[in-house]
Design a protein around this nucleic acid. Structure first.
Length: 595
RNA sequence: GGGCCCGUGGCCUAGCCAGGAUAUGGCGCCGGCCUUCUAAGCCGGAUGUCGAGGGUUCGAAUCCCUCCGGGUCCGCCA
């Protein structure tokens, strides 16, 4: 049996009565009814718009409407300025709301499941070195979005599109096979990505100073593409350096770096993704289908043997022809480009889902637009939707793997955990070592994820250690701490939470505020999912934690003498605990039972 | 040259798409609260031309226009 949400019931009750009153007054206009933010009321009717047509001051209008709406058993009314405020009768609303929410226990915030298949592509970082903090924003946003969409009821999966056909990877492969380990700086960390990035950086430097190396790498790239196209993974594509390089070695180099990168992602609590290699669209031939398809477009054109779509009519911009708006999909020599393979990948992806969401850096905005237009030219009805984020920079500028000017994610993770450990040690002398480590990991990693996710992605972030490792205020540990407190109460109070509750005993301001806050959960999840705004959840869980802390301050549970009130309060704590744990879970942050 | 994104107390930030009441919260600062369920908490205080200017509106942080500052992109690179 599904109960209707009291929020909606009370809301529509007020709304209907207002509508009636308005039509009595001869007003047709749609009334503006909103939820005031600051607890001034549960709902309010904005009366300014009616003032003119009734030629009365807004306040008088509000009073007249109040008169006509009359007395209700659900709410009381009050006029303030030009507003008609509606306060739900707490003795009744609280009970209705509490029993409704309690019936949802175990799946608070969950949306009704639908069969919409959504694929979120995120991370997709080039496999050429360890994640730096800038790159880490992508998986954190992506994974959080996956968790939110899942909770909102979508059929969700995520993909990592591996660029194994680009120059970056060839530089890496060339480096591995041509550079002697003893010519490299010492490994900063015993981990595959940290090991191999040294070859990449060195190869890059060599390539910049030696044209022959650059040429080598280019021919490696061309030969690799040919081998993949023909499915000959054993084919030798280079004989320079230490013997020969086979096509399969390129894949192997990617996988080695990726194993290190994945390790970091796992530690960051990023859920596993389906790994899709760029070479797939070359090997299975779908790339050439896409090229043939594009050649049928009315925008198709050629220049010096290269094929492109002329998008100048479709993309906004000035008419300076130094800047051409072209989607080039084959070079003069007939080979394909990264963007073409990306297009083939998206064609495949979109054929297998209802909605594709890509998490991309803001530098991909233009490319994403072109991709969308090209997909439309291919006759695709669906186009991917993108969530863009701005970069994380250092106080003195951009991060760059190539130049080695970075804060590595692994270092940041270590520092976060180390610092969390110190904090735990300060407060808890009683804990055994393994529990200490567990909490430090949970708190440190949580703080990090939370700090990235709490601000809207469009804002650029200037990375500062002291802010990234913030353990108080609006942070993961703040929320985790409230959760631990709730767990502690539940554990110490014991007792059963079966059967009926005397919800009418829930009368304190803090209790009611917390309950109302809990009731917002499902709306927040839905809004975050539909608008793809992951930071809503972070903002919300802090509000819940804050409301819980007020309860903690005002309403002792264990010391409560009235057994029915104590039980109801305990149930309220249990609901808060669930929302905090679930909310943190949506952010990929674990909720410790003690800390 | 142009497109897109951002600009909110000393610092960071919510609200902006769907305009409404005294602009959200945090960091830092000042002053308080641990014989009562974990003080990673709580309470109080100081700090604001919501980048600037115009416009629309009864009402603008929010919508429109212009400008300024920062980011980012405009490749037969990936």
């Amino acid at each position: 049996m599904e109960y209707a949400d009291p929020k909606d019931l009370y809301d529509s009750d007020f709304r209907e009565k207002v509508q009636e009153a308005l039509s009595d007054l001869g007003i047709e206009r749609e009334p503006v009814i909103e939820r005031p933010k600051k607890g001034l009321a549960d709902l309010c009717l904005v009366c300014f718009p009616f003032a003119k047509e009734l030629s009365k001051p807004p306040r008088a209008v509000a009073e007249e409407i109040m008169e006509r709406v009359g007395i209700s058993d659900k709410f009381t009314l009050e006029v303030k300025g030009g507003y008609l405020n509606c306060m739900f009768r707490p003795e009744r609303y609280t009970s209705d709301l509490a029993s409704f929410l309690w019936s949802k226990k175990g799946e608070l915030g969950k949306g009704p499941s639908n069969d919409k298949v959504v694929v979120v592509e995120h991370t997709s970082a080039n496999p050429n070195g360890p994640f730096h903090v800038g790159r880490a924003r992508n998986p954190i946003i992506g994974d959080t979005l996956v968790r939110i969409l899942d909770h909102a009821g979508y059929n969700i999966s995520s993909q990592y599109w591996i660029n194994d056909m680009g120059k970056q990877v060839m530089i890496l492969v060339w480096g591995i096979h041509n550079i002697d380990e003893k010519d490299l700086p010492a490994m900063e960390r015993k981990k595959e990505d940290h090991d191999l990035v040294r070859y990449y950086q060195k190869a890059n430097a060599l390539m910049e100073s030696d044209e022959r190396i650059a040429a080598d790498i280019n021919s490696l790239l061309a030969d690799y593409e040919m081998a993949v196209k023909e499915g000959e993974w054993d084919r030798v594509i280079s004989r320079s350096g230490d013997g020969e390089i086979r096509a399969i070695d390129v894949r192997a180099a990617c996988d080695r770096v990726l194993s290190g990168m994945k390790n970091s992602l796992t530690r960051l609590n990023i859920s596993d993704q389906q790994m899709v290699y760029e070479s797939q669209v070359v090997e299975d031939g779908s790339l050439w289908d896409v090229i043939d398809g594009l050649k049928k477009s009315s925008l198709y054109n050629e220049e010096d043997g290269a094929s492109f779509l002329d998008l100048s009519e479709l993309i906004e911009g000035g008419d300076d022809d130094r800047f051409k708006r072209r989607f080039v999909f084959t070079r003069s020599d007939g080979t394909a480009l990264y963007t073409t393979r990306d297009l083939a990948y998206h064609k495949w992806k979109l054929d297998n889902c209802d909605l594709a969401v890509n998490v991309l850096g803001e530098d991909h905005r233009y490319q994403s637009k072109m991709l969308e237009l090209a997909l439309r030219e291919l006759g695709s009805e669906k186009v991917p939707e993108a969530v863009f984020y701005s970069f994380v920079s250092l106080p003195d500028g951009k991060m760059s793997t190539r130049r080695g000017r970075v804060v590595y994610l692994d270092d940041l993770l270590d520092d976060a955990v180390e610092m969390a450990r110190k904090e735990v040690e300060k407060r808890r002398k009683d804990l055994p070592e393994d529990r200490l480590i567990e909490i430090a990991e949970t708190v440190g990693i949580g703080a990090l994820r939370f700090n990235i996710i709490k601000v809207q992605p469009e804002k650029k972030i200037v990375f500062k250690w002291e802010e990234a490792l913030n353990f108080e205020g609006a942070s993961a540990p703040f929320v985790q701490y409230s959760h631990a407190r709730a767990c502690s109460i539940l554990q110490k109070a014991g007792g059963d939470l079966e059967g009926q509750f005397e919800w009418s005993k829930v009368v304190e301001r803090s209790e009611q505020n917390l309950l109302k806050k809990i009731a917002e959960f499902s709306d927040i999840v839905e809004k975050a999912a539909v608008d793809r705004k992951v930071h809503f959840i972070a903002v919300y869980v802090v509000e819940v934690a804050s409301a819980f802390n007020d309860l903690y301050r005002d309403c002792p549970v264990i010391g409560e003498e009235d057994p029915e009130r104590r039980r109801a309060r305990l149930a309220l704590v249990e609901m808060a605990r669930e929302v905090l744990a679930t909310g943190l879970g949506l952010l990929g942050v674990s909720a410790p039972v003690s800390m």
